[in-house]
Design a protein around this nucleic acid. Structure first.
Length: 156
DNA sequence: GCCAACGTTGGC
DNA sequence: GCCAACGTTGGC
């Protein structure tokens, strides 16, 4: 099966692409996703080798700031079992986890942000869910063409 | 800070 | 199974 392409949202005040770059081996786990549709992507579809656009939400300049690579397939998000964690889920069962995560590795940081406004203005990106009104999914698929269109925009 | 849009919960 | 109420997301 071929490589797939994704967009992950993060609030840069919480976790930024610079934070990822500073991680040991530039790898981290993508924890805290508590949405079933996103969970299904993390559990079933996102595979090691897939490429990810790193998107900044809820900040001054929303948009894609770089890329990373999935380096571990979906596995149980351990924060669901930790009562001290803000993402704790008291209904989660260890033998049958509700929530999943993958590991990602830093690849590139764009020299500039490809802003949401630019993406909305580009007809080639009209089907990307992040540009669509009211979209709240934090892990979402993009096509190979959409992925490379955004990378290309970052170089202009 | 505002508020529209969304997903989830829970009463019925 | 419906749907109103609620809490959260996230652009602006």
């Amino acid at each position: 099966m071929g490589k797939n392409y994704w967009l992950f949202k993060s609030e840069p005040d919480v976790f930024s692409i610079d934070d990822l770059q500073k991680c040991e081996e530039q790898i981290t786990y993508w924890d805290g996703v508590r949405n079933y549709q996103a969970r299904n992507f993390l559990r079933d579809s996102i595979k090691s080798g897939d490429l990810v656009l790193f998107y900044n939400s809820n900040c001054d300049e929303t948009g894609v700031v770089g890329t990373c690579m999935v380096v571990r397939n979906g596995y149980a998000d351990f924060t669901q079992f930790d009562p001290k964690n803000m993402h704790y889920d008291e209904s989660a069962v260890e033998s049958n986890p509700t929530w999943f995560m993958v590991d990602i590795k830093f690849e590139t940081k764009f020299t500039r942000t490809v802003t949401l406004a630019e993406m909305k203005a580009n007809p080639k990106l009209e089907n990307v869910r992040v540009v669509q009104r009211g979209n709240r999914l934090s892990v979402l698929p993009v096509t190979e063409d959409e992925f490379y269109e955004i990378v290309r925009m970052s170089r202009n």
